[in-house]
Write a protein that binds this DNA or RNA. Structure first.
Lengths: 224, 224
DNA sequence: CCGGATCCTTATAGATACTG
DNA sequence: CAGTATCTATAAGGATCCGG
């Protein structure tokens, strides 16, 4: 470790590890699974190769992520979170929930497809502080394609139990095909689901009611 | 804002605000109430006056903290968290819970009295993920003096409902007088409470059983 | 003594080009 | 594709000084 706060406080220790510039954003990009160097560079606009290399090296040494070489058919090296690195999830959740309530900064700019889907998990009703009224529990499986980025989701008894990259293993109850901005608008509530479907911005196959429940389960914290 | 990640992701936004070096540690020092410039400088060994001034100015502009001039009898200026700044609490909790499980770094160095008490809250059984067995709920009020740093605590039905600087308003059930290192050793479990009392490292007035329950409620996450 | 500001040095990040 | 190398800009570290 180069610079350290040199304290005995676990918060300071965490910041020694993931508090450097870009570090937590690199980890964020690995939340839904392994990524190649190139993927990370594209997902982190503005990071320079030197800094990305340095962060990856440091985070690997700390045990937050590991390098892995995929066998010949793919022949790529990827970075993936260790079990301990994956335990940063509550940190991301709390940071996102705090940042979204910022009274000063507008929250403009691009968001990756991964982040849109992870935002759905972070702000999914029932994953939160448990301050909401109990909703009617439901269960359904989903496949959502945002352009060529495909995700599978599963809700069981009103809890979001699965979110991963890639198509659903078995036939899902609902199949959604749309674009990232259209999906964002629907989730954000600025474009009602039925309008988006009617206008062809979003196509649904299967249980539309289950999709309505999913969209409705996305909460919208009040900014201060 | 000087440097920004320029993303639409709320996590990146949060890091734009509190992701700069020292920023989150400055906020940490205000978790239990207002502090003067000098207090912050002493609590953050290694921070330079220029950096501290800059962070305070930035955090004030973002609305995380505010400056306040105390009226003549005291005549000091203090920094205190805004309501939104205080909402960073879950971020501290998750960072502390993650850092304490670090497989590589030892967690050595000084810890402020505030941090010791806040650690008790962070790792208080029942404040966590709810993964523990249900404990017998109890209620008690405490006053803990670590040298000249005095804190009051209240447990209601097994939940830690109050933690603040300063003596208890009404006569507490338990009054503890000890030193920071002795209190740390007892909380950490390396120095059994009864030994510490017998050896005079810690003096208790009042309900010793209630103090035992408090100490026992401090959980110890397994490092990886 | 408190609450900083200033000056200088060092470390880290940004920009760009280039290589195994 | 997965990084290194080089150079420049910026931010942090260290010491000192200053006004109220």
């Amino acid at each position: 470790m180069t610079r350290t706060y040199g304290e005995g406080c676990p918060i300071a220790l965490s910041l020694d590890i993931v508090g450097e510039r870009w570090a937590l954003l690199v980890v964020r990009e690995l939340r839904l699974g392994p990524r190649r160097y190139r993927d990370l560079q594209e997902a982190l606009p503005g990071i320079t190769p030197a800094v990305l290399s340095k962060r990856l090296k440091e985070l690997e040494e700390y045990g937050v992520l590991r390098r892995r070489e995929l066998p010949p058919p793919v022949a790529a090296r990827v970075y993936e979170l260790t079990a301990w690195g994956a335990e940063l999830e509550p940190v991301f959740q709390s940071l996102a929930r705090w940042g979204v309530r910022s009274p000063v900064l507008p929250l403009t700019g691009e968001v990756s497809a991964d982040s849109v889907m992870l935002g759905l998990r972070t702000f999914f009703d029932g994953n939160g502080d448990g301050d909401g009224e109990p909703r009617t529990p439901w269960s359904a499986s989903y496949e959502v394609a945002l352009g060529r980025d495909v995700y599978r989701l599963r809700v069981e008894d009103g809890r979001l139990t699965e979110l991963a990259r890639g198509p659903a293993a078995d036939a899902p109850d609902v199949l959604v095909r749309t674009t990232k901005p259209a999906w964002q608008a629907v989730l954000h509530g600025t474009d009602p689901l039925d309008d988006a479907v009617a206008a062809g911005r979003l196509s649904v196959t299967g249980d539309v009611a289950a999709l309505r429940r999913l969209v409705a389960a996305r909460t919208h914290p009040t900014p201060r």
